[in-house]
Design a protein around this nucleic acid. Structure first.
Lengths: 104, 104
DNA sequence: TTGGTGTATCAAAAAATTTTTATGTGAGGT
DNA sequence: ACCTCACATAAAAATTTTTTGATACACCAA
């Protein structure tokens, strides 16, 4: 249905990096502020900022500002989109026979 | 449950590249041999070989040899693993309250 | 206003991925 | 055996991603 490979790829980039997987694991335990995430990660402040941007762009995570702090949490809609998309991308639409394109 | 971020990341690399997404789309229509895939892609023979290796390593795709041809198809078990994993990675385990780690 | 804190952004460097080119290998056919 | 075909692998080049360091910006407090 969706033919925009670029944006599909962007979604899954969320899950393709160790730091981001760690962030997601922390967010599963509820909303966290950037400083809290940073405490438990092995990267610099600007590094975290970069990864959070990737996560936001994937739609898996949302953020809110409160004063000078930024809070992040998993976005259920984004998560649902991701699950549906993996499902869609890996569902075979035929009774998967052998390919006979080369054999006579 | 799984704490091996590297291997989780490897799984999702399958979905992070435009060429590989195109391959998956073709495989949804059933098993295909390498030459057939190549026909419909914008990459060289060794390029396809590289991408198929990534897909195989992710567990989403399997292959079989027949004579000098190689056939690829989507692996239902790998697909199921992927869906489950996205689900797991994005499921919040608490009644997602606001984080209060910075506010007094 | 000034200064400090939390985060974002930019640019450069480093690292990883992808593409390209060349070569190697194994299966068939002659 | 030899040759060819389909594909894999290796090395080099090109590109993208990630990290790092510097700076900028917004907010708050004094």
């Amino acid at each position: 249905m969706d033919s925009d490979y670029q944006s599909q790829a962007r979604l899954f980039k969320a899950f393709c990096d160790e730091t981001r997987l760690r962030v997601l694991e922390m967010l599963r335990g509820g909303e966290k502020c950037a400083c809290k995430l940073l405490e438990n990660l092995d990267c610099g402040q600007s590094g975290l900022s970069y990864h959070m941007k990737v996560l936001l762009e994937s739609g898996i995570v949302t953020s809110r500002q409160e004063g000078k702090w930024t809070y992040y949490r998993i976005c259920p809609e984004g998560a649902f989109t991701a699950v549906s998309l993996v499902q869609q991308l890996t569902t075979v639409t035929v009774d998967s026979d052998r390919c006979d394109c080369c054999e006579p």
